[in-house]
Design a protein around this nucleic acid. Structure first.
Lengths: 202, 202
DNA sequence: GCCACTTGATAACACTGTTATGGTCGTGTA
DNA sequence: TACACGACCATAACAGTGTTATCAAGTGGC
């Protein structure tokens, strides 16, 4: 990576860390880097390329959080720890989180390369979930349970920052998420029913 | 409401329905209304006021979906029906959904009046959940279970439109959401444990 | 050395939301 | 009736946005 490219990316990262995606005009970035705006087009093909780099950076953080670690007391606790880390990232890396989930810059569309990083992060999580489910669990169901756990946690991570829920007495969002995921894991472990049967009245 | 205000709002609503929030420049709205841009400032205090009107419109749709209806087979089925309707809205009214959850226009911040509409929609949902839980359930827990159900569903509604999950074989998001919420309702009905105990390893 | 490509500064372009300017109209008060 | 004031309107101007155009310099390959 050339010196200019590094200078631009460092400038963008610093501005992003200070004030989120709205601080990232091409003029602000190039001024911070001590260059003109043209370098953003030469090295990153424009502003979208800058945002792609930050998107990938954010997803790498999420992936690291969702990866199996060796110090969990059980595979199940490993999942709970991963979700706790995910909830922490949604707050501590709020700029990245908002960018990834569409709230940072409404004109940004991730490139195909950036998208594949997100998909790979999910694969890491599937592996973590696989260790907590029976060994004979079909691969389809594995991915589905992982998707459910992730989607569930994601709802809590997203809603905790939403202005309507900010009007409420502050709940402990991580605790609520863990509680919901615990219920989901219990249900997944307890039954062998097909995935869609939850759709019927019980 | 004056004729000018109506013309502007109709123009904005039509443009929004066609191409989402990105179609809503003040020049596009005023051109569609056959007026100059100044009316947007006189009648709506600027573009944020236009977006507020659409935000409130979207939240009113969500509120209607989440409200108790009299034709559910049981209170529990009433919740499941409401969540199903919520999932439907997230797709059929994608523009409104994206605007409400921060993805429509990253420069938009809802006014305090708009925010209270969202909070009121949640109150309707709490009432729906109350009918499915034991009558002696403390109000705190009621609100918390309602929040959990809503957050859980919200995760599915949001992730179904995200580009990383769009790379996957298309899951039935509504079925997955209902399945997760069923697990959550089972857990809420089965135990009287304090809300935070799910945080411990089991 | 010549040529093609890459890189960089600067200016220009088309677009954005907003404010400023000047004018008209309607309403209330003396 | 006359006047003052406020609301509303068209238009122009402003300051900002991402991007492209123009010109010049540097580099690498033949």
């Amino acid at each position: 990576m050339s010196d200019t490219k590094t200078r631009i990316l460092d400038a963008a990262s610093n501005l992003f860390a200070e004030d989120g995606a709205s601080a990232l005009s091409v003029r602000a970035i190039s001024k911070r880097a001590g260059l003109s705006t043209i370098g953003i087009y030469n090295h990153f093909q424009g502003k979208q390329g800058i945002l792609d780099a930050l998107y990938v950076e954010g997803f790498n953080m999420i992936a690291a959080a969702m990866r199996a670690s060796h110090d969990a007391a059980s595979p199940r606790q490993g999942i709970i720890d991963a979700i706790t880390r995910y909830m922490t990232i949604s707050t501590e890396q709020a700029g990245h989180f908002r960018l990834i989930f569409g709230q940072g810059d409404s004109s940004y569309t991730p490139s195909d390369a950036a998208k594949t990083v997100g998909a790979a992060a999910f694969d890491d999580f599937v592996y973590l979930v696989a260790r907590a489910l029976p060994k004979d669990c079909p691969r389809n169901k594995l991915r589905e349970v992982a998707l459910q756990i992730f989607a569930t946690a994601h709802g809590y991570a997203t809603l905790q920052h939403h202005e309507t829920t900010e009007l409420m007495r502050a709940p402990d969002w991580t605790a609520l998420a863990i509680n919901a995921i615990t219920a989901l894991l219990d249900a997944a472990m307890a039954t062998d029913r097909p995935p869609h049967s939850g759709h019927k009245n019980r």
